[in-house]
Simulated assay, not measured.
Amino acid sequence: MSVYTTLQELGITLPQVAAPAAAYLPFVQTGNLVFLSGHISKKDGAVWAGQLGRELTTAQGQEAARLVAIDLLGTLHAATGNLDRIRRVVKLMGLVNSLPTFTEQHLVINGASELFGKVFGAKGQHARSAFGVAQIPLGAAVEIELIVELE
């Protein structure tokens, strides 16, 4: 089944690639690997700011991570021209804006990991890191970067 059929079944519309907010590219391809720059959490077109363990719950963080994953899919579509070219989601790195006492970063980033599993099936299973950080640009709750391999 096409990735686009799965996205349609999930009710997901791919967003346009956002213009970089600083001196970087949204993605770079080298060989069969595509590296996507970090995407920050947004809700209703605005930065979804907040700190996990203070203003935001783990469940809200998971939703923020899921929305970041949707933004990453939009950028990935722009980078590849066709999401069906994805051979494998290789690595995901998640940063979670959180209090020092918050220890559920791995559960927050599951919001993105689980979506990639639903969209790509076995090809969406990936290596991953999840870190708690003191701050993310613009106060965003979550930032995620991604590496994929193309057919």
Rank of each mutant, 00 (worst) to 15 (best):
Q16G: 12
G132W: 04
G139M: 01
G121W: 00
H39W: 13
V17L: 12
G74P: 00
S129A: 14
E151H: 01
A134I: 02
G121C: 08
T103S: 10
L14H: 15
F102P: 00
K42R: 15
T80C: 06
I70G: 07
L95I: 07
G132T: 00
P137A: 03
L10F: 06
R66I: 09
I86W: 02
Y24C: 04
T6V: 15
L150V: 14
G139T: 01
A19V: 12
G31H: 03
A59M: 01
Q29A: 11
E55T: 10
L7A: 15
F120L: 06
F27W: 14
G117F: 11
A78C: 00
Y4C: 07
W48L: 15
E9N: 15
R54G: 09
F120D: 06
A46F: 10
V3R: 07
A130N: 13
L25S: 13
Q60Y: 08
K91W: 09
Q51R: 13
V34E: 07
G132Y: 06
A49H: 05
E55K: 09
F131P: 03
D71M: 07
K91D: 12
P26K: 02
L56V: 04
A65S: 04
M93S: 15
A127M: 11
N32Y: 07
R54L: 12
V34I: 14
Q8E: 15
A134C: 01
S2G: 08
D44P: 05
M1T: 10
L99G: 08
V34K: 02
A127G: 15
G94S: 04
K43N: 11
S2T: 13
P15W: 00
A140D: 05
L7G: 15
L107E: 13
K43F: 10
V3P: 08
V90D: 15
I12M: 04
Q135W: 06
T80V: 02
A23M: 05
L73D: 06
Q105K: 05
L73Q: 08
Q62P: 01
V96R: 00
F131I: 08
L25Q: 14
L25F: 05
P100W: 08
N32A: 13
G38S: 11
Q8C: 13
A19C: 04
N97Q: 06
T30D: 04
V142Y: 03
V34D: 10
N110W: 03
S41C: 05
V90C: 07
R54Y: 11
E143R: 05
A65V: 10
Y4R: 10
Q51E: 13
P100S: 11
L150N: 06
E104I: 10
L14P: 11
R128L: 13
K43C: 12
A112S: 14
A78I: 00
L72A: 03
L72Q: 03
A79V: 06
V96A: 07
V142F: 00
T30Q: 11
A22K: 09
S98R: 07
K118Y: 10
